[in-house]
Simulated scan of single mutants.
Amino acid sequence: MTSQSALDSITPLQQMIASCSGAILTSLFVTPLDVVKIRLQAQKTPFPKGKCFVYCNGLMDHICVCENGNAKAWYKPRGHFNGTLDAFIKIVRTEGMKSLWSGLPPTLVMAVPATVIYFTCYDQLSAALRLRMGDQADEVPLLAGSLARMGSATLISPLELIRTKLQSERQSYRELSAIIRSSVHADGWLTLWRGLGPTLLRDVPFSALYWFNYEKAKAWLCQSSGSREATFSITFIAGALSGSIAAVVTLPFDVVKTRRQVELGELQAQNLTAQASSSTYTVMRRIVTENGAKGLFAGFMPRLIKVAPACAIMISTYEFGKAAFREHNRKRPASPLQTSST
């Protein structure tokens, strides 16, 4: 007879659907916050032609190259805002409600597949590692989180570089294959993973800390509330707490990665080779020289405000989706192969 735990398990496809739903909901909720933030930043320090800025909604970073003092979606230099609420109202009044989600399409195209790969790999790796690590099972979230993030970031990195080229050189998607061929012919296959190092420096430690703290916080909250299973509110709170801790600890890597992304984007906009770009270590040393050690922690509050709700929405939606699939599988009639004994 098949065990109850086997009936309660969910398939990788169901995990992918649950993570996809979480990524879409997170993008829908968090994108307006970053659209408003970019507009407020732009009016304080206008972006000149050829300069870049990084847009991030908690799931994916997007490099935006300014053209004639403008960028296609996120930055439109018109109007004056007196604060966050005033910016929300004026953007909706003058440009329409949909303008608050002007950065959504590239997020859905890239962040959703990356998130699906990441969360599904984490669950699959966790299940496999727990069987093999035995007494050291408490360290599984650290290892599984690191490996899952490393894999998803490596797979998505070529798409991120190509997307930046499409924007900076104003190419159409039909010319995508020509861009790939020209890049590979000029600099080799490794050019498609340009900028991966700074990404991994931030995202791998973030992922390891996030999953470790999330599993600990979820277990503690379940024990404190006397709940046998994690509820939506428990996973939401655990996700926000673990995301906040990971965001603060890895902030210096995020500052360096942002500066490095901007430099790479500007080089591509000017059709310069990436060899002229500074290394990660050089960027970090420059930041400390110009602004002191505190420069590595610039943007502390904006990052916290953005990452905490994004992590909370993503993980709670994902866990809710998995719980719904488990319940569905539990109620589904067993097949003859499942009910027969071997």
Rank of each mutant, 00 (worst) to 15 (best):
M60Q: 11
I63Y: 02
C64T: 09
C64L: 03
V65S: 05
E67Y: 07
E67V: 01
N68C: 10
N70K: 14
N70S: 12
N70I: 07
Y75L: 15
K76Y: 12
K76S: 06
T84H: 06
T84R: 09
L85P: 08
D86G: 10
A87V: 10
I89A: 10
V92W: 11
M97Y: 10
K98C: 03
S99E: 13
W101L: 11
W101H: 10
S102P: 09
S102C: 13
L104S: 06
P106S: 04
T107N: 15
L108F: 12
A111W: 14
A111Q: 14
V112H: 11
V112E: 04
P113Y: 09
T115R: 07
V116H: 07
I117A: 15
Y118N: 15
C121K: 02
C121M: 12
S126D: 13
A127Q: 11
R130M: 09
L131I: 05
R132H: 13
R132T: 10
G134R: 14
G134T: 10
D135E: 11
Q136H: 08
Q136Y: 08
A137K: 12
A137I: 04
A137S: 11
E139D: 10
V140F: 04
L142Y: 13
L143A: 02
G145A: 03
A148T: 04
R149W: 03
M150R: 01
S152W: 00
S152E: 08
S152R: 00
T154D: 04
S157H: 04
P158I: 00
P158T: 05
E160K: 13
E160D: 09
L161I: 06
L161Y: 11
L161C: 06
I162W: 01
R163W: 12
K165G: 04
L166V: 05
Q167N: 14
E169F: 11
Y173C: 05
R174K: 10
R174P: 03
E175R: 08
S182P: 05
V184I: 07
H185A: 13
H185L: 07
A186P: 05
W193T: 04
